[in-house]
């Protein structure tokens, strides 16, 4: 039995979407989408299901997401203040940052010397995983639904039984001289 993921408020959802979109950017889902900055064509981490993966009880971050959202917006406000940036007060501070500023702030938060680095690396790790492995979904379902990440990567379709096999797999010929000091068992001498 998996516990239900915690309900996130609208501010947290937008903030975490904006963070995930900074890790793997995508196109806006609708014209006035403010969380997704639209820095890249095609779906990014948000369309790939970053919020679903972050909220998955198996991941270990679900209970912390509201707190992470609040911390992220605090960092964004400090970042804007230091630079004299005026932010749209109707939006969470991180969401109000332009994409380039979001990118720079993520670099600061994940810097090896930043005291909160493990938190932000964890958030980035799951955002990336949503795109490059769809770890919140059965992989067969993700491929059938044309998951934006697996599709963009060109991840191959399996055989009809849902298992991958590649009978076409080799150039089939020697392509280098082997090392002169190779032993009879094929190991380095």
């Amino acid at each position: 039995m998996q516990p239900d993921p915690p309900e996130l408020d609208a501010t947290s959802i937008m903030t975490l979407e904006a963070f995930a979109d900074t890790i793997i950017p995508g196109e806006k889902r609708f014209p006035d989408d403010v969380a997704v900055a639209g820095a890249s064509a095609g779906g990014g981490a948000v369309a790939a299901g970053a919020l679903e993966l972050l909220s998955h009880p198996a991941g270990g971050l679900a209970e912390s997401l509201d707190g992470l959202s609040q911390m992220l917006n605090l960092h964004a406000m400090l970042y804007a203040n230091e630079r004299g940036l005026a932010l749209d007060e109707a939006l969470p501070s991180f969401v109000a940052l332009p994409f380039a500023a979001r990118t720079e702030l993520v670099a600061q938060l994940t810097h090896p010397e930043h005291p909160e680095k493990p938190l932000w690396v964890g958030l980035a790790l799951f955002s990336n995983m949503a795109f490059d492995s769809a770890a919140h979904l059965p992989t067969l379902e993700a491929l059938a639904a044309k998951h934006p990440g697996l599709t963009a990567m060109g991840y191959a379709q399996p055989d009809p039984d849902g298992v991958w096999r590649f009978p076409d797999s080799s150039y089939g010929r020697p392509l280098a001289r082997i090392h002169p000091n190779t032993t009879s068992t094929g190991s380095p001498a």
């Binding site: 950017p25 890249s40 990118t103 670099a107 990336n128």
Partner: peptide, 16 residues
């Protein structure tokens, strides 16, 4: 600049 995330990383993944 940052090379493990952002637009360059997405482009890298598109060449997976």
């Amino acid at each position: 600049g940052p090379a493990w995330y952002g637009v360059p990383k997405k482009e890298l993944l598109q060449q997976w």
